[in-house]
C-alpha cells in the first residue's frame, strides 16, 4: 500500500476526536475573524497557485484527456466515451478491477485486524512490549520500494529464499515460487503490504487503549472483571475510532498502490498483480496511450471518491 503518513496525522476522524467534546472549542461565529482581504490573499496566493497547478489542473485535465484518443506523438482525436467503452470491454482492465478490489480489501483486513489484535495484546503489558511495538512500527517507516526489495530477497524461488528454506524444512515439497505463481503472487504482495502497514493500526489502537482513564480500568478490575472481559467490553469498543481511521487510510493507500507492485512483480506474472493504479501507468507511460490511461485514472478516482464520501462530508462540515 502507498505510504500515507501525512494523511494519518491529518485525518479528520482522528482518534482524538473521541474526546472532542471534552474541551470547549471556540465558537465559529462569523464576527471574530479579522477582515483583512489583501493580507489574506498575500498569504494564500502562493498556495493557491501551487495547489492549482498540481491538483486542480491535473484533475480537470485527466478528465478532459480521457475523452481523447492520444497515441504517442500522433495528434489527439476526440472519441467521446470511446475510451471508457474500450476500457470496460478490455478483459485486461476488468481483471485489474478485480485485482484492485482483492488487493485493497486484503491489505486492509489483514493489516488492520492484525494491528488491532496486537494492540490488544500489548495493552496487557504496555511497558514490556514497548521495544516490540517499536520494531513493528519501524517497518512502517521503510519506504515501499525498499520493503519490496527486502521481501524479494525473502521470497526468492531459489535456495537463497528464506521462506522456502523454512517451509522446505518442515514440509518437504511445499517450497513455492510465491511471486511466480499467478495464484499466490497477489497474496504475496498483499502480505508484504500488510507487513509494512501493520504498524499504523497497531499504534493508533494502542494509543486509544492507553488513553482509557486508569480509573475505569481499575474499577473494572476491582469489580473482578477478567482480563478477557476487560478487553471485550472496554478496550475493544473504545479503540474502534482508531480502527476506523486505520481502515480508511489503508483503503486509500492500497487503492493508489504503485511502488510495491513496480518493484516486486511489475504487474506480473500473467498480469496477476496489475491493479488499476499500475495499469494506468503501463498504458500511459510505457505504451503512451495517454487518453486511455487517463480514462483508467478516472475510474480509479471514482473508486477513491466513493470510499472517501464519509471523510469528505466530515471534513467539509468541520471546515469552519
Amino acid at each position: 500500500m502507498s505510504r500515507s503518513l501525512p494523511q494519518m496525522v491529518a485525518d479528520p476522524a482522528d482518534v482524538s476526536s473521541r474526546d472532542g467534546g471534552g474541551r470547549l472549542r471556540l465558537p465559529a461565529t462569523r464576527g471574530w475573524r479579522i477582515k483583512e482581504t489583501p493580507a489574506a490573499w498575500l498569504l494564500i496566493t502562493p498556495v493557491i497557485i501551487l495547489f492549482g497547478i498540481s491538483v486542480v489542473y491535473p484533475l480537470f485535465d485527466t478528465l478532459r484527456l480521457s475523452f481523447f484518443d492520444i497515441k504517442g506523438l500522433a495528434p489527439a482525436k476526440w472519441v467521446g466515451f470511446g475510451n471508457y467503452v474500450t476500457l470496460f470491454n478490455d478483459a485486461t482492465f476488468r481483471n485489474t478491477l478485480l485485482t484492485t478490489l482483492i488487493f485493497t480489501l486484503g491489505t486492509t483486513v489483514i493489516s488492520v485486524s492484525l494491528g488491532w489484535a496486537l494492540a490488544m495484546l500489548c495493552a496487557f503489558a504496555p511497558v514490556h512490549t514497548t521495544p516490540f511495538r517499536g520494531m513493528m512500527f519501524v517497518t512502517f517507516g521503510i519506504s515501499e520500494a525498499v520493503s519490496g526489495y527486502m521481501w524479494l530477497n525473502i521470497l526468492r524461488p531459489d535456495k537463497a529464499g528464506l521462506l522456502n528454506a523454512i517451509i522446505g524444512n518442515f514440509i518437504p515439497g511445499f517450497a513455492h515460487s510465491w511471486l511466480g505463481d499467478p495464484n499466490t503472487a497477489l497474496w504475496s504482495l498483499i502480505f508484504v503490504a500488510s507487513w509494512s502497514g501493520v504498524g499504523l493500526p497497531l499504534m493508533l489502537c494502542f494509543a486509544a487503549v492507553q488513553s482509557i482513564p486508569r480509573t475505569v480500568l481499575e474499577a473494572a478490575y476491582m469489580d473482578g472483571a477478567k482480563p478477557t472481559s476487560i478487553m471485550r467490553h472496554i478496550m475493544m469498543p473504545l479503540s474502534l475510532p482508531g480502527v476506523r481511521v486505520a481502515i480508511f487510510i489503508n483503503l486509500l493507500g492500497a487503492l493508489r498502490a504503485f511502488d510495491i507492485i513496480y518493484v516486486m512483480t511489475g504487474g506480473g506474472p500473467v498480469r496477476a498483480t496489475e491493479t488499476v493504479g499500475y495499469f494506468m501507468y503501463r498504458e500511459s507511460m510505457t505504451q503512451f496511450k495517454l487518453g486511455y490511461g487517463a480514462a483508467a485514472t478516472v475510474v480509479l478516482l471514482v473508486a477513491v471518491l466513493v470510499i472517501s464520501i464519509p471523510a469528505i462530508i466530515q471534513r467539509t462540515a468541520g471546515a469552519k
Binding site: V55, T62, L301
Partner: peptide, 25 residues
C-alpha cells in the same frame, strides 16, 4: 470557506491523477 474545503478534501486524490497532465504540461 470554499477554498478551504477544496484544499483539505484533496487529500483523498491518488498521485496517479497528476501523472499524465503534469507530464504533458
Amino acid at each position: 470557506r470554499l477554498l478551504l474545503i477544496l484544499i483539505i478534501n484533496a487529500f483523498v486524490l491518488p498521485q496517479q491523477v497528476v501523472v499524465i497532465p503534469l507530464f504533458t504540461l
